[in-house]
Amino acid sequence: MENKYLIFLGCAVPYRVASYEISSRKILQKLGIKLIEMPEFNCCGLPLDMISHESMLTLSARNLVIAEQAGLNIITLCPGCAGTLKKVNKVLKENRTLKDKINNNLKETGLNFKASVETKHITQFLIEDVGVKKIEETIINPLSSLKVAEHIGCHLLRPKHFIDFDDPEDPKVLKTLIEATGAECLDYMNETECCGAPSVGVNDKVALKLAHDKFKNVKIAGAQALITSCPFCHVMFDTNELRIERVFSEKYGIPVLHYPQLLGLAMGITPEELGFKDLRVDASKILTQVIQGVK
């Protein structure tokens, strides 16, 4: 399985977060990682967990079987997909009765789940499989004039006993990866709290309040940009920032970047090639600063 991985896009990324996919593919290419497209895939199952746990398990297992047939481990861009695929693989591996039940659901379509592939989110992959040292070697334009804040996203860390990655109470991985680019990563209040995205459509008012609280604390810390590693968190912040400013009569003007966009800039890749024009919140100020090296 040397340097070759299946990329699992999930639904949100191809639906509306092209900039995340573009920048992720660019940086992985730069790091010499070969991505193979999933021959076929479906929703990871997470949205259906709310109404039918068994449907979630079945949909997720179907994706895992497709990867098993390809004989490759999975890299995902969405922490929701990564968490779901990881959790289902572990649960079914440990629970024979449940595994038989899910396999029975898949049987008619000729699939059989074996629990033989591993799933990692791109953030986990970068820190564990690529490593900070190798990432640092690719940096030609250190972003040392930049001060940012991170929002790693709940599903990359929780629930801890299933995900078993980083420390959910004091996450350090995304910070370490940010610092590898030369940028400074600032701490802020309530850093590990939810972005609010899961409440969109159920109670938008609550969702906006959560995101507003984030922007407020990120601004107090003095960060010039917010760095995410989840398509949903990114949409929640980037797409809603102007609305939040209007609703709460505040001005933030904080651009929201996907981590691969930040790393890509430090690797000397152009903003155009990293999908910067898709961002709703204007990032031109920090781009000028990092590209011209102006402090």
Partner: peptide
């Protein structure tokens, strides 16, 4: 519930 799993952890 946003399924952030803070309560679970």
């Amino acid at each position: 519930c946003a399924s952030c799993f803070t309560c679970t952890d």
